[in-house]
């Protein structure tokens, strides 16, 4: 399966979906003008991957920020990952900046909504 890779922009995240290498990641900022438009290829890719997933799927959520429009799409992604758990050992690594209590809270809440193992990983503040 062809990997889906998108470089980050100021308002859209870095996307790495590479089944062969076993890398599944969203990172940086997500506040696109049209969230549905941006995430449609991502969701399509995961839907395709779900047909024949790897034995293990570790999804790295490394977003620094996402807006509410993106949150609707992220939940769709998490629900899709949940749906393939009988075929793959799926887990979510939820990264958040140590000082970002809102991102930590969202991670905790999503881990309650989504029936998958979540690991919440704080990123320490960088020293300047």
């Amino acid at each position: 399966m062809e990997p889906l890779i998108k470089e980050a922009t100021v308002d859209t995240p870095k996307v790495v979906l590479d089944a062969e290498k076993g890398i599944f990641m969203l990172a940086q900022m997500s506040l696109p003008e049209d969230a549905v438009d941006f995430y449609t290829p991502v969701i399509n890719w995961i839907t395709e991957y779900a047909r024949n997933p790897n034995e293990k799927t570790v999804f790295d959520m490394k977003l620094d920020y996402f807006n509410t429009a993106s949150s609707k799409q992220l939940i769709q992604i998490l629900l899709l990952l949940q749906s393939l758990k009988d075929r793959s050992e799926v887990s979510i690594n939820w990264y958040y900046k140590e000082i970002d209590e809102d991102m930590q809270t969202i991670g905790e809440e999503y881990s309650q909504i989504i029936d998958l193992p979540f690991t919440l990983i704080p990123i320490p503040k960088k020293d300047k």
Binding site: E33, Y65, A69, D100, E101, D102, K125
Partner: peptide, 20 residues
């Protein structure tokens, strides 16, 4: 980058996108 700025940023995005 402080917890206040992180919150302010998030609120600002929602308010501005609402207008957009």
């Amino acid at each position: 980058e402080t917890p206040t700025r992180i919150k302010l940023y998030a609120v600002m995005v929602e308010l501005l996108q609402n207008i957009v």
